[in-house]
Design a protein around this nucleic acid. Structure first.
Lengths: 234, 234
DNA sequence: CGATGCATTGATATCGGTCAAAGATGGTGG
DNA sequence: CCACCATCTTTGACCGATATCAATGCATCG
């Protein structure tokens, strides 16, 4: 019973779940993964793989932020999601990657051949179960996103995006009020389904309302209660 | 290693996957499930359970269509999805249901205590693996939906909804051109994120374009190629 | 045969998309 | 060190699609 063979179309898993409920990888497992992986360092903007590329290795994000996107023939892009430290991505269907992934910041990745991981999982039921839990987490995350992205005005979507960064962002503890925003307005728009101009205007409106204050590289949440209300309102 | 304990927030699985790639339940497993379930028959409109209700039983849809929805305090509803024959639903988080589910048509359900199913899965690795595959299917389905619902005009969304019914609808083989629509415009709108008026107008536009023809209880696809183009265009 | 719920249609308002231009910002090379 | 260029961001004007509000039509069921 091989778990990975049943993950053709998922593309990514979140090891550090949105609401961390499951135990993270054990130290033993972490070391085991490190032993079989090759470390890859990339600069901002570097493409990790393209939609349609053949590939049979998966990646674990060690540090930085990665953007997974799909390009339409219309030229529009759709950001499937961002991969934060701890996230696994690069699951292919029939040996072909499903998305294009690009480094948003400088990133350090661990590249693991699929064969190797498959073997590891076959030998370690606990690790396999861990992967299963990650699939479930990812599903929960997807459901949450699809509910949030729809039916919501632009400032609401941007607020919920900031909240997502607040929870996933590296370098800050949960509940931090200063959030780093490494990706462009365009990336954000393609993720929350707005144009980059609308994202900009939404940021301004949040700013004008005194809820947040934008800095060069991020945002400062000024009025926590109003921000929460904006995010919570489904 | 118990699979179900890790499915707190999923709410539903699709046994008859959107693109059936995995083997369905074996006859033995089907009989096993039938033995431990109680059959429930409901009329259209009947509520199966409400968001927040305590519950520790899951349901398998035997026939008919069920609607799973979330109600917002604003009074708006959001349809998470429809459950067709073969679908499993009613997975609760901490013993509390996450959605309200309602019979759209007359339905026959199989109600199975979670304990019982858990035990069964623990004893049957193949069945457990089958469930895992269903989680993956559901995740794929979610990703597909979230990509489709966003960035698309009203007629496009309605067309893709009709296409979804065409694949899932009971009583017709795949690829059938006559599709039954048991749910209301309001339900459709809450699913594809349009108002009921916009759904109505979109139907009219599809009608006027000669692509489909609406009947009392469903829709007839007249121009298959244009319909496909409309659905395929991401 | 009213009453109720659902569907259709119309008028108007609003929000975000599109097009366009003008600031920031950061990196590169002279 | 500064000028220049590319990229990102902001802002504005306008338009179109959908939400909203409102009325009517149309079934089904007491």
């Amino acid at each position: 019973m091989n778990v990975l063979s049943s993950l053709p179309a998922i593309e990514a898993l979140t090891l550090s779940g949105f609401q961390p409920k499951r135990p993270p990888l054990t130290e033993r497992q972490r070391q085991q993964l490190a032993r079989v992986s090759t470390r890859v360092q990339l600069k901002p903007g570097a493409v990790i793989y393209r939609d349609g590329d053949p590939g049979n290795a998966i990646f674990i994000n060690g540090s930085g932020v990665v953007c997974a996107l799909k390009e339409m023939r219309s030229g529009k892009r759709r950001v499937a999601g961002f991969r934060f430290p701890g996230d696994i991505f690069g699951l292919a269907e029939h040996g072909v990657y499903l998305n294009t992934t690009r480094a948003v910041t400088a990133v350090a990745l661990y590249r693991i051949p699929l064969d190797t991981l498959t073997t590891m999982l076959r030998q370690d039921a606990e690790l396999e179960f861990h992967f299963f839990c990650k699939v479930v987490d990812e599903l929960r995350h997807q459901q949450r996103k699809s509910i949030i992205v729809a039916r919501r005005d632009a400032p609401g979507r941007v607020a919920m995006f900031i909240d997502l960064l607040r929870h996933n962002g590296a370098g800050h503890g949960l509940g931090e009020d200063i959030v780093d925003i490494p990706m462009t307005r365009s990336d954000i728009g393609d993720f929350v389904n707005l144009t980059l101009e609308s994202v900009s205007r939404a940021c301004r409106r949040l700013s004008d309302a005194g809820i947040v204050k934008f800095t060069a590289t991020g945002v400062h949440i000024l009025d926590r209660s109003r921000f929460r209300k904006l995010v919570a309102r489904t």
